[in-house]
Amino acid sequence: MVPLHSYLILGGILFAIGMFGALTRRHAIGILMSIELMFNAANLSFVAFSRYLPESALRGQVFAIFVITVAAAEAAVGLAIVLGLYRNFKTVNVDEINLMKW
């Protein structure tokens, strides 16, 4: 049986990788993909807790379903924003979109 700590540490590693991508990618869609990685890492921890702590009574899995729902909504709106950015600026690199930067 794999101990609970292994799942949680794997979730932590995936979260850190996703966060690094979200902070450093120049491509706007790359940032969105990194954010999806972070969602997945959080979900992994939720599901692992819900499996290993018996009194949780599947609350972790239900919460993970809601996280997936919100992630889908976020992806749809985020990609629509990326399309709008490309239409107005002809680029999707977020560090070239600095109209409001002083």
């Binding site: 999806e36 992630a71 889908a72 992806a75 990609l79 399309l83």
Partner: peptide, 15 residues
């Protein structure tokens, strides 16, 4: 099936 296809569509449409 959903989000990745959406992302691939957005990539094809923009960059």
């Amino acid at each position: 099936g959903g989000i990745t296809i959406l992302i691939l569509f957005a990539i094809m449409l923009t960059s």
